[in-house]
Amino acid sequence: MDAAVAAQNRQLLFRLLTVAVVMLGFGFALVPLYRQICESLGITQSRVVAPVNTQVDRSRTVRVEMLASSSGLPWRFEALTREVRLNPGELVTVNYRVVNTLGRPVAATAVMNAAPSVANQYIEKQACFCFSSQQLAAGEERVMPVVFRVSPKLPSDMDVVTLSYTFFEQKAAQS
């Protein structure tokens, strides 16, 4: 191999090495490059759409009214949400508030009743203060949610349902 060819070879070696080094830098540059390109082209949004609840019957609306009462117990108990309009199958949250106006701690349990009574089996509660007894200190106030849905199987002639909660005092040691 004569000197001229050897010099040519060396020149090409350094050129190709430069390409390799530049490509190494390019590999790192890809990190900001991808971000910039996607942002400037506006293609950063995800193809994944939020999941849709397919069990909601959008074709009809049911009005649900909330009532509150106490049986023989001077508690102030009221529905903060008096009324909701919902689609059967849709999960809704309503709030009740209770204040213990007595000068002593009281334990009480709430019982729910729906009207018309046939609707009872279509009210599906996920969270409710009626699942356990409520202990309130003297003068204590508490806001309590009810998470429920009305089953899509609710008979189609029913468009108003009333939920009525009643608190009963739990008498201690009454056996």
């Binding site: 390409v19 390799a20 080094v21 490509m23 190494l24 830098g25 390019f26 590999g27 790192f28 890809l30």
Partner: peptide, 8 residues
């Protein structure tokens, strides 16, 4: 062209 990118 690509081996340096893998190295990176």
């Amino acid at each position: 062209a690509v081996m340096p990118v893998l190295a990176g």
